[in-house]
Design a protein around this nucleic acid. Structure first.
Length: 593
DNA sequence: GCCGTTTTCGGCCCGACTGTTTTCAGTCG
């Protein structure tokens, strides 16, 4: 684990300790934020500390800098250890139990001596919690249930697993008569690769329809447990253990609700803070004039009896806030709010900008469709070009091509391309294996016969950092390699991937004119959003490809584009958005090196 | 703990739902 991640975990634990001890809540919030910053950071915190740059990072103040500095120098933090010594370590995991928060945990500890989950279970079973202030029978039952659901709740689902479930629920919601329309919100809408729960927003005929829609929702056949249910929101657990939260609002508040529940939390806090500086307040019902809102009658469970300045669409709200519309994928508080205020947001790449797939397979190796079928399907999608890149000889299990078969295959690809002239251009290519030491699976003489080369690591996914970095660098330096396919080899929720030193990889790729892939196939999505953004900042071109093994695979391009959007990519950053002449120039330039 | 075109001190985003209470605290997102 990198120092960034070690420190991220340390700050997360520190925040939990502060919460349980009931110290200043803002201290806990500040440490949580530092934890998140460290987790998403694209640079090495150790290097930043050596370069004396810690003070420049927004959100990391004097106290956190001291902790980081000491941890880097001595491998420990006295501040943290002192705090940790004052709280039984077994209390921290209790925060993961749904329905159980820091206040109750502290109460259980101080009043009943509970110091870990096992003791909590025992205390419940032996009826030791009776008589605690604020803890009744129902509360005890909900804690018991929370313990049982903890393991499932803690696990984040991959976007590829959660999206179909969410889409099915949206379709069901739309079939309810009182529902006007429904949309996915939350981290799923922002395109995060894993999600903690599904957030759905629907608009209803009138506020009065809320309870009916809520009742219909919790009665869906997928629902196995109801967390809560009211006139404007409901929360359930579905068969797969996935939590789904639904908000219901009248149509005129839909945009504000969608904005609020798309998040991220940090983006929301930033723009609500911005609203305050402009004498307005923003909540899930709309953007309001602050004075009016403070005077208006306060009641829970419905829209304020007050005309909002904006609420019908997200665009309305952003406009009234004096900022440009922020695409959902950018709403992570990574500088997008500041840019939106100055109207300087990048124009993110869209599916419509995409001109062709550069990493695909056919029946020649392990694909399920022929060259013609793939070309046909690509042409029907409006693609201008398609690179056919079947596996190389080391991939025996995938029916990898020998040099001889590859060259014959290339001829066939060109023949089909000729036949389809005017509709689509095929590039005769190969996905050549990057061997353990960075050599390629074919000699230069063979690769020189091809139009396009993707080089990918398949074997040895657990190499150490130095070897893995040298391995990819060597492949990048080959004049015939145009794209490094799925550079880390990670699989979401299954495999970590190569521990690359990204700064070195990016520098080599930028210097040689080699594109790095965002593999759009789930569960690869590799490079991920964070690394892709760092690659762009280092001047690297990206290539987004489906790695389709059949015509249905082309459909996965959407998820790849979404990763690129999360990386703030514009079409100028992606070689798949070039026209054919530009792409050929991109290839030719490297061969001249 | 963090931050500053009102502030180096005094704020820090906001509301719904539950359960335990008779007006609110805790939790969640």
């Amino acid at each position: 684990m990198s120092v960034n991640h070690e420190l991220s975990d340390l700050f997360a634990r520190f925040a939990a300790i502060v919460e349980i001890k009931g110290e200043n809540v803002f201290k806990a919030i500040a440490f949580s934020k530092v934890s998140r910053l460290l987790k998403d950071m694209t640079f090495d915190i150790k290097q930043a500390a050596l370069d004396d740059k810690l003070a420049h990072i927004e959100g990391i103040g004097a106290a956190s800098q001291r902790i980081i500095q000491q941890y880097i120098n001595e491998g420990r933090s006295m501040d943290y250890e002192e705090a940790a010594a004052s709280v039984p370590p077994g209390l921290l995991p209790m925060l993961d139990i749904p329905g159980l928060g820091p206040k109750t945990i502290a109460l259980l500890w101080k009043q009943r001596g509970v110091t870990n989950i096992e003791e909590l279970v025992k205390a419940i079973d032996e009826n030791q919690l009776a008589g605690l202030k604020g803890i009744g029978d129902k509360k005890i039952q909900s804690i018991k249930q929370g313990i049982a659901m903890r393991a499932q709740a803690a696990e984040r689902r991959g976007i590829g697993d959660a999206l179909p479930i969410a889409q099915a629920l949206v379709a069901r919601l739309c079939a309810i008569p009182q529902v006007k329309h429904a949309e996915i919100a939350g981290s799923l809408r922002r395109g995060r690769e894993t999600i903690g729960d599904v957030d759905l927003i629907c608009s209803i005929d009138s506020a009065a329809a809320g309870p009916q829609v809520s009742a219909a929702f919790v009665a869906f056949p997928e629902v196995t447990h109801i967390n809560g249910q009211g006139a404007t929101k409901a929360s359930v657990i579905t068969a797969g253990g996935l939590q789904v939260d639904l908000r219901m609002v009248p149509e005129e508040h839909f945009g504000a609700a969608l904005l609020y529940f798309t998040g991220s939390k940090d983006h929301g806090i930033k723009i609500r803070g911005l609203a305050l500086t402009k004498g307005m307040t923003l909540n899930e019902w709309g953007l309001y004039k602050l004075d009016d809102h403070e005077q208006a009658e306060k009641k829970s469970g419905g829209a304020p009896k007050l005309k909002p300045l904006a609420s019908r669409t997200e665009a309305d709200v952003y406009r009234k806030l004096g900022m440009a519309f922020v695409e959902p994928e950018m709403r992570e508080d990574r500088g997008e709010v500041e840019l939106a205020v100055q109207n300087k947001l990048p124009a993110l790449i869209a599916v419509a900008d995409y001109r062709g797939d550069l990493h695909t397979h056919t029946t020649a190796s392990d694909g399920s469709n022929s060259i013609e079928e793939m070309a046909d399907a690509a042409a029907k999608r409006g693609y201008l070009f398609l690179a056919v890149t079947d596996h190389s000889k080391s991939q025996v299990i995938a029916n990898g091509l020998t040099a001889e078969r590859l060259l014959k295959h290339a001829k066939e690809i060109r023949r089909v391309s000729e036949r389809m002239k005017g509709s689509i251009t095929l590039l005769a290519g190969c996905e050549v294996d990057i061997l353990v030491d960075g050599r390629l699976d074919f000699e230069d003489g063979v690769l020189a016969e091809l139009d396009f080369v993707v080089a990918s690591p398949h074997v040895s996914p657990k190499q150490d950092s130095q070897k893995a970095t040298d391995r990819l660098k060597r492949a990048i330096e080959s004049r015939y390699v145009n794209v490094i396919g799925h550079p880390t080899g990670r699989l979401i929720n299954q495999r970590e991937g190569l521990p690359l030193q990204f700064d070195k990889i990016f520098a080599a790729a930028a210097a040689t004119g080699t594109a790095l892939e965002i593999n759009a196939g789930y569960p690869r999505l590799d490079l991920n959003d964070i690394n892709a953004r760092a690659a762009i900042q280092a001047g690297v071109m990206l290539s987004i490809n489906t790695d389709a093994h059949g015509i249905a695979g082309f459909d996965e391009i959407g998820m790849g584009i979404q990763v690129a959007r999360r990386a703030w990519a514009t079409k100028a950053n992606v070689i798949n958005c070039m026209d054919l002449a530009e792409l050929r120039k991109f290839i030719a330039r490297k061969r001249e090196l």
